[in-house]
Design a protein around this nucleic acid. Sequence first.
DNA 1: CGGATATTTGAGATGGTTCAAGACGAGTGG
DNA 2: CCACTCGTCTTGAACCATCTCAAATATCCG
Lengths: 245, 245
Amino acid sequence: MVLLACTSNHGLSFWTDAHRDAAGALRRVCDATAQDVARNRFLQLSSEPTQGVFFVLEGWLAIAKSTTFGQRQIVDFVLPGEVFDSGSGTRQRSSTDLIALTPSRVAIISQARWQGLLRDHWDLQEMLNRRMAASYSRIAGRLLRVGRGCADARLAYAICELCLRATDRGVVDGHAFHLPLTQEILGDFVGLSSVHVSRTLTRLRREKIVRTSKHMDFVIKNADRLAAVAEVDLDDLRTEIIPRA
Amino acid sequence: MVLLACTSNHGLSFWTDAHRDAAGALRRVCDATAQDVARNRFLQLSSEPTQGVFFVLEGWLAIAKSTTFGQRQIVDFVLPGEVFDSGSGTRQRSSTDLIALTPSRVAIISQARWQGLLRDHWDLQEMLNRRMAASYSRIAGRLLRVGRGCADARLAYAICELCLRATDRGVVDGHAFHLPLTQEILGDFVGLSSVHVSRTLTRLRREKIVRTSKHMDFVIKNADRLAAVAEVDLDDLRTEIIPRA
DNA sequence: CGGATATTTGAGATGGTTCAAGACGAGTGG
DNA sequence: CCACTCGTCTTGAACCATCTCAAATATCCG
């Protein structure tokens, strides 16, 4: 479950103003355990014992679930400043993989320590609650498109979602951003084959809704039509899936 | 987001032993505001202001999201003893519908009061965290099947999930249980048309994996094959999606 | 420049949808 | 007790979206 905030691109900076003491405690814990992770490394394998709580300082990670025969679904991405808690229920085994999509920097916090932090800092727990609600909204929204939407809607929705998460600026015309993903990973995110992601992206490009260059550099050309294809209200989407500070 | 427990079929009974004071506070709040709800009534409409937190005392409810043109996806069910919090982020507007699938009894708790309860009772918050993790696991598992599984896998998985949630007993041969759903609702749950739910259910019946009678009375005939079709390990599934007490 | 990794494009197979008609079952009123 | 009705489920047939396989580019990295 993805828990904490990402407004700036640097993990802890978010916390410094509103939540000084929680931030301090968190920072101490993170400094002690932070480590660098190479691209494509698995930080957590499903069916292996949970290692605790992962706090992302830099990089993009993916939470993925797989069927017994290798079909993969990406459940959510974890961005800098956010937390992934694979065993919230104090479970023994993780049920998900956690994969570094870019070179990353991650702190691993033990369950016990994390519980202690939450208990001692109510504002941390409170923020956690908001983050969890946002993360739940994200997955619920995606479930709707994956279950009921056509390929265009799924992809357009994913682009809106990721545009909002990747940067502070909303989904507005001319906004450019980069996603550190391949089309295959995007497909695993929205339940499409990479081939069909390619075709659908081509269609969105041809209709001048987005522009892309050099592997996943996006520019929003027509936010209104993008929102229409995604069947979503952009303002609503933002308040739903991006936790407020 | 679905939050609390359901082991017995009566809302508050779960709380009495381990969490006496939290249970007492909760009970007082619920007694004051509980109300009966008719089948098929909407307790919460998306795009309407959030009413607060819903605590279910009796009945099955469904959390649903819809596209602008009426395509519906059921995100999760809410069972007795569980809580639905439509605006966890203290948001103004709900983004989901909440529908009573059976005649139900529900208490509505204001956001402020709920926040207060959580702050005053750490064990309540702690249990909430576990419930949220379980509810997240449920939706993530379903997202995997909906995104990547064929109709058989989606339905078989849903049957496992709902069997586990509907009763204390696991998914075992001979276990009988009732689901207060139509095939159409089941379809909205797993992203299939009601027609295809019917066909797929027929296949599962023909292969002697489940037996059904009079509208959604299920009997598990072959739990192993059901699990195989659902591509799931039944023990793992239980610890993932059913919060431990 | 060369090799690996990603993307594009085509063509055929497939699984699920939609529409439409019929069967079944539970509840209702005569 | 029967006949009607409404909601639900079943079944068939045609259609369409997406997948898979396969080959042809394009892009990145050393």
